[in-house]
Structures are given as structure tokens and as C-alpha cells.
Design a protein around this nucleic acid. Sequence first.
DNA 1: AGCTACTCCTGGTAGC
DNA 2: TGCTACCAGGAGTAGC
Length: 287
Amino acid sequence: MPELPEVETMVRLVRPKLMGRSVTGSQVAWARTLGGASSAKLRALVHGRTFLTAGRRAKYILLGFSAKGKPKSTEVDTWLVIHLRMTGRLMVQAGAQPASPHTRVSLTLDNGARLEFIDPRKFGRFVPTRDLEDAMPALGPEPLEGDFTAKFLLDELAARRGRIKSLLLDQSFLAGLGNIYVDESLFEARIHPQTPANRIPRARVRLLHAAIRRTLEEAILREGSSFDTFYRTPEGQPGSYQSQFQVYGRHGKPCRVCSRRLNRIVVAQRGTHFCPSCQRLPRSAAR
DNA sequence: AGCTACTCCTGGTAGC
DNA sequence: TGCTACCAGGAGTAGC
């Protein structure tokens, strides 16, 4: 599933193909992908506009357009807010390429290419808006930015009793992690996923802070993880971080550190992978 | 505050 | 081989 590293990789991939291009047409094959907006609104907001920015906030891709009729302006007044959810991808296709059978929304560009939002499971969103605040929920800090400090994590965890895995998946607490990188980070910090947040020793919280950053940075360097339904474009190499997984999807296999068989449980309705030997639940926290 | 359950979806796969 | 049943899971929401 696309998480922060995969979304960042996707942005880097499409940015050079979009900057300076303008939109000449649009097609909507699955209306709900627009998140409540109509095809007419999409048309009204983006036709004739020029792509000015391509960025990321948490797992959202933000494509910014210059004001209408002012393609040279640096002012962005219209956005596409894109969330890949489980199976979404963005691709810029040459005009001659046929559309994917799972293309849900497609924008035609002034060079004849198409920006396609491809999403087999239809959970993803591709939302045109003038108001970013309106199109995104409240989000916690970016894990790789300066405001995500060890002190922030120490202070916040001390005040919460929920299980650490649930908390790290909560985008309003910390924005960008998903199931894979939470499991990997908790393994690296040797924290059991069901540990109540306020029961984690301070030294482990510091380890967790470093683990989250290191895991995400390494995954971005490797252009994310590619497997199952998430691939890169045909012209790009797939991400390779999945070869670095320590625990995710490795239940039943030996721990790379201690050789004990890895376990899988369900926490917060998510498959959760961990080493029962390296990641111990504190006795005082056992349910 | 924090938990579970349900919804949205379909490709992949386990089981027969 | 071909069928059916079930599952994965990010995020929003409802209910306790």
C-alpha cells in the first residue's frame, strides 16, 4: 500500500512530466473518485490550467495550478488533492498508449499525453478544489520534518494510553506512516505493537523516533516498496525496499536478528507482524 | 479518550 | 479446470 515513501516516489516521477504542461481535456470513468465533486467541476477548475507545483503532504499528492489565464503566475489558486489509498497510481501516458482498464480519471495534456489516475479498488481520490484546507483533514507533523522531534514523541506518548501501533497509524497524530512502515519501525525500536504508548521507556521512545525517520528515509532512497498491486510505471524501475523488510509479511519466517519465528496478530484491524522475542510486551501492560 | 464494527471495492487465492 | 467464498486494508464514520 502506498505510504509516505511510495507517495514521495510517485510525486518525483510525475513532476517533470507535468510542470509547465496545461490541461486540455478530462475523462471521468468512476465518479466517486472525485470525492463528491462533479465532472463539470473538474472541467471548470482544471481545463486550460497550467501545472505549477507537484508536492506531497503526508500521503496526499498536491498538484497546483496557476490562476486561470495567467500561466506565468507563481500563484497557485486551484489544486488536485490526490490520495492513492490502497491501489492508486498516477501515470503520464503517451497519447498513443491505450488507457489502463482501471483508469478512473484521466486528464489530457497540451502535448497529447495523458495524466491517468489508475486505481483497481476504487478507494483512491482525485479531488479538484480551490481550498486545500477543505479537501484535507487535520494532519499531524511530517515525520521527516523538523517539527517531528524526539521531544514531541516523548511528550505526546506520555499523555496517551492507546496502543502504540494504533497511535502511529493515526494520521492526525503523525502523518504519513501506514501498516508496513509502522511494523518495520516498531521492530527496529524493539517495541511490541500492543504496548500502551505511555508504558514505553523513554530510551525506547528515542529509538522509535530515530527508527521512523531512518526507515522512511531508506525507503525513499530505494523508491518505496513494490509488491502485490502496487507497482511503478513501465518505464520506471520498481521500488526495492520490500527486500529490506524485517517483519512485514514475514510471519512464520525466522527473525533476522534472533532467528525466532515471527508472529502475526491483528491490531487496530490491521495485520501486524512482529518478533515475539525481540519485541516484548511489558509485564505490567499484558492484557 | 480509545475501542470495535462497518463501509467502500476488487484482484488474488484458498479450498473443494 | 472451474467454481465459490473469503480476505486485504486506509480512512471515514457511528456507537459504546
